[in-house]
């Protein structure tokens, strides 16, 4: 385990290639209904420690719903989800434990507008993990240096551009030293230049061994960075596999059709 790895992943095991003995996320036949609408139709997949997984698919394929079930912003109706050994169920302490293990980055950043960048990052470490203010501040500065904007530490979110805001949001999620980072279309609200910056940053995180699940339409990024791709359509995993398989010789007709439409 290198120093750089501990820096961001807080002791999570680094990427161990394909044999990954200890899955970070286990999903078994996960279903989710919105009223009578069957959103997730039996999702089963394992995500290993240190793995970078890109979830893609047409709009309305419940990619975001799947992601949001992983930290219980949405409650799945049946099946089993286990994160770092903790089962997501109705037990409150399990929920709190999982939320500590899983960080999330949103499409629209959702920074707290009444707090400065520093306060946005240090709030959860101080309040949830009871970290001393000085320590939290030091961590905030270190993370902002890592995401490349240490000079903006005392700005308010309304002063930031989209790309800067998303960097802060990533730093805020990393400040909790999550084992898993969920990213819900992290670049969809950004301009092309900011997109490149954020994707480069995510690539670095992936190299450092961060376990990430990313919903994105950036297929070039997926090809380069992802260890594995998940193609979702109508709430089902149509096909999953490494980028070479998905982009080179997809098994499923639907995957090929979708890729041909967007590439």
């Amino acid at each position: 385990m290198t120093d750089a790895t501990t820096d961001v992943t807080g002791g999570a095991a680094p990427a161990t290639g394909t044999e990954a003995p200890h899955p970070a996320i286990v999903c078994r036949d996960v279903h989710k209904w919105y009223g009578r609408f069957h959103a997730l139709r039996g999702i089963t997949t394992d995500i290993a420690e240190g793995e970078t997984v890109v979830v893609f698919g047409p709009s309305g394929s419940a990619k975001s719903t799947f992601l949001r079930c992983l930290n219980r912003l949405e409650v799945h109706d049946s099946g089993e989800i286990t994160i770092a050994g903790i089962t997501l169920d109705h037990q409150v302490h399990n929920l709190a434990a999982v939320r500590r293990q899983v960080g999330m980055v949103f499409q629209h950043f959702h920074l707290f507008p009444h707090l400065t960048v520093r306060q946005n990052i240090t709030l959860a470490p101080q309040v949830v993990r009871h970290m001393a203010k000085a320590e939290a501040d030091a961590r905030a500065l270190r993370l902002l240096e890592q995401v490349g904007i240490p000079n903006l530490i005392d700005m308010y979110p309304s002063d930031l551009s989209g790309g800067q805001a998303q960097r802060v949001a990533i730093a805020r999620a990393l400040a909790m030293e999550p084992r898993v980072l969920l990213l819900d279309e992290p670049t969809s609200a950004l301009d092309p230049e900011s997109i490149r910056g954020i994707l480069a940053l995510l690539g670095e995180l992936s190299d450092l061994g961060m376990t990430m699940v990313i919903v994105t339409h950036e297929m070039g990024f997926a090809r380069e960075v992802a260890d594995r791709l998940l193609f979702l359509e109508e709430g089902q995993v149509v096909e999953e596999g490494p980028p070479e398989q998905i982009f080179g010789h997809a098994q499923e007709e639907r995957t090929r059709r979708f890729l041909s439409q967007i590439l």
């Binding site: 912003l73 709190a96 939320r99 999330m104 959702h110 709030l123 959860a124 949830v128 999620a173 909790m176």
Partner: peptide, 20 residues
């Protein structure tokens, strides 16, 4: 989104209420 971001960071209800 504010509540979701706070929840995703692990804040409990009263922490979310008091700080966010």
């Amino acid at each position: 989104g504010q509540r979701e971001a706070a929840a995703a960071l692990g804040l409990q209800w009263w922490q979310m209420t008091a700080y966010v």
